[in-house]
Design a protein around this nucleic acid. Structure first.
Lengths: 224, 224
DNA sequence: ACAATAATCTAACAGTCGTTAGACTATGGG
DNA sequence: CCCATAGTCTAACGACTGTTAGATTATTGT
């Protein structure tokens, strides 16, 4: 050793302590859900609380933690405060931690298998093929999320049709073509519900468990 | 909604709860340090406790948590129990969470800047160039970690010379060639200390802050 | 069979975290 | 200027976590 070992120890403690801040921020289920929601686009505290089924006070407390770890940013607009993810690296990390969890935790694999029959990730080649087919109009890529999220970011050649409008807008969908429905990602069940409904109507529909975060897309804010 | 909303909520809670297990496992500085150590190769509880400067009891408790999240595995060999990372995905996650921390946390960036003047990651092209130069013998790539870790995995064309033997083995190093020293990664200060020593001896040495985990290499166990 | 080693398990402590309620602050509309 | 809205801050509760000490288990060597 060329340096006093206790000095080395002190430096290491500081470094790992900092990295652990990211771990702490992502150690709560609700905070992870908030991150996923923010991957779809910027949202107010109220919207985040509603969609994650918690009180606004609790949402505010969790968002405070995420902001302390610099994973999210805020901007005031009138009476509302809009939260958004700090950058695309945060979205990539959400996909990464989820992937590791699905790789390592049997319980998660089983829970996923129960809700969908297509849990497998698409390879880059599959994605290319899907985009090509969508461009040529061979398949309809349907985004069933709320319109604001579609506006913030969506898959190439996708068409917006929020799940709650789907039943009344069935006539807009062309017959005889395969419909690929997607939503916020594999843990969001909107696309699955949409596919169930479409199939019930005799349409050829399949569920794409990936969303904008999995495709490496980051939402744009209307202001920028 | 085609399904009762409370059912959807219950499923989501289960899914995020599972992912949060990975976050919880990586929310402690000591557990992160243990993961990094295990990225270098399998080790006994005693070795892990010694190298992370904690008691064996505490190390055992932390390793228990990591095993509960299925991030590490154990194997008994005589009186010792060897721990190892479950697979390469765990090592990749360690690099990923560290990258995000370095991207988002100013405090970490500052702490890193203070200990090294070359904190920048190598691009794949840089790595190729380094390997090529090492193969041709233009540079000496020096692995200053303990010999067991070198045996478990090391960078291509690297030569083993543990830091505590460095002073007495200086004669083995050829004059006039650049020496690139590396250790366990950017948070390990052995390579930095080695470079300081080599420079003091009038040798041309530079510090490579990356290690086997950053290069995507996974240790092999001697038994397999 | 007995002692020594390596590690885990249990219990207990303080400290932190998730959650809720109540008070407080900032903004926009009448 | 007052009120409603959107959100934060503070305090308090129980639950969980990190840490340590003491007892316990598994293995090896004599």
């Amino acid at each position: 050793m060329t340096k006093p070992p206790f000095e080395t120890r002190r430096v290491k403690d500081i470094l790992y302590e900092q990295v652990a801040r990211i771990g702490k921020a992502t150690s709560s289920p609700k905070r992870l859900e908030l991150i996923e929601l923010l991957c779809q686009g910027e949202k107010t505290v109220e919207a985040l609380a509603r969609e994650s089924a918690i009180s606004m006070k609790l949402a505010s407390a969790h968002l405070r933690e995420l902001r302390a770890a610099h994973l999210v940013e805020t901007e005031r607009s009138g009476k509302n405060i809009y939260y958004r993810i700090a950058n695309r690296e945060v979205a990539e990390f959400w996909v990464a931690i989820r992937s590791l969890a699905e790789d390592r935790l049997v319980e998660l694999k089983m829970a996923l298998a129960r809700i969908t029959h297509a849990p497998k990730e698409l390879t880059p080649k599959d994605r290319d093929a899907l985009v090509k087919a969508a461009r040529k109009g061979e398949v309809i890529v349907l985004d069933v999320r709320p319109t604001e999220e579609f506006a913030a970011a969506h898959l190439p050649y996708a068409q917006s049709m929020p799940i709650d409008q789907l039943k009344s807008r069935l006539a807009e969908l062309p017959q005889g073509r395969t419909i690929v429905a997607y939503c916020r990602g594999p843990y969001c069940l909107m696309a699955k519900d949409a596919v169930d409904l479409l199939k019930q109507q005799g349409l050829d529909a399949i569920h794409l468990p990936e969303g904008v975060a999995e495709w490496g897309l980051t939402p744009v804010r209307p202001s920028a």
